[in-house]
């Protein structure tokens, strides 16, 4: 093949991958994932939430009440023994998920953060 053809092929590859990448990220807000015992049970686009709402997740032997507002999510109530998950407060980004150890429940932001890849000292129960 001629050099010109190669230039065109390369250009096409770059343009197509650029468009695909843009399509993947376009309009996508911060997505919270609610994970129960390793299984994603809810995906919530936090930036698309207009009015706040709550829902309960029934877990092995108890429940967690999850509160969702525009751009943020938290566990507002739980009948777990230590309530470390409630103490966490609001999650709106970052690489540290809300964890309820006793109920094996995790709430995290998918592709959440560019500030840190992980945080040291998350604590014994989180």
């Amino acid at each position: 093949m001629k050099t010109k053809t190669w230039i065109i092929v390369t250009a096409v590859i770059f343009v197509v991958s650029g468009v695909l990448t843009a399509a993947m990220f376009w309009g996508r807000g911060r997505t919270a994932e609610v994970v129960l015992d390793g299984r994603v049970i809810e995906r919530i686009d936090l930036d698309a939430v207009k009015e706040g709402y709550s829902f309960d997740v029934k877990c092995d032997g108890g429940y967690n009440r999850i509160r969702v507002e525009h751009g943020r999510i938290c566990i507002s109530d739980s009948d777990c023994p230590d309530c470390v998950c409630v103490r966490y407060g609001w999650l709106s980004g970052g690489s540290v998920p809300i964890v309820c150890m006793p109920h094996k429940l995790v709430i995290r932001i998918a592709d959440g953060d560019d500030e840190t890849d992980a945080v040291s000292g998350r604590g014994q129960h989180g």
């Binding site: 103490r87 992980a118 998350r122």
Partner: peptide, 30 residues
Amino acid sequence: LGGNIQTIGKKPDGSMWRVGIRSPLVTSGY
């Protein structure tokens, strides 16, 4: 591992891993 961080090599893009150190005084959020 529950807040114990260990890094292998660098990030796929060749930059260093960014490890946050948790603020000890913050009682809510991280």
